[in-house]
């Protein structure tokens, strides 16, 4: 069991829940488990090809999974996964 922290902008898709317990031995499995239980959240996390969206960052603890083994990053009991939306913009 790992815990996923839902960022403020996406909480309306999880009934305002901020933390959720998920099943899975890797980040990929955990995100799939989350998407299965919260289908409205899915389109914000996974693209049509089943890959994590570019605008979404995933951290395990304080580490970006891009610095670990990406979606294959293994999880332990008690791992904390944070979903982090990319924040960007600009004037023109």
């Amino acid at each position: 069991m790992a815990t996923v922290i839902i960022p403020t902008p996406l909480r309306k898709f999880t009934g305002q829940k901020t933390k959720l317990e998920v099943e899975g031995s890797s980040v990929k499995e955990a995100i799939e488990d989350l998407a299965l239980n919260f289908p409205d959240l899915k389109k914000h996390l996974i693209d049509d090809n089943g890959r994590l969206r570019t605008f979404v960052n995933i951290f395990v603890g304080d580490d970006d999974i891009r610095d670990l083994q990406n979606e294959s990053t293994t999880l332990k009991d008690g791992s904390v996964i944070s979903i982090i939306p990319a924040i960007a913009g600009g004037s023109h």
């Binding site: 403020t8 960052n57 951290f59 924040i87």
Partner: peptide, 26 residues
């Protein structure tokens, strides 16, 4: 001068700050 971006780690800290201080990240 025409673009901004916030680091993922800064965002993570902001969510933690809001929770620790009983505030909403709005």
């Amino acid at each position: 001068r025409r673009r901004f971006e916030i680091k993922a780690l800064d965002y993570l800290r902001a969510e933690r700050y809001a929770e620790a201080n009983n505030l909403q990240l709005l």
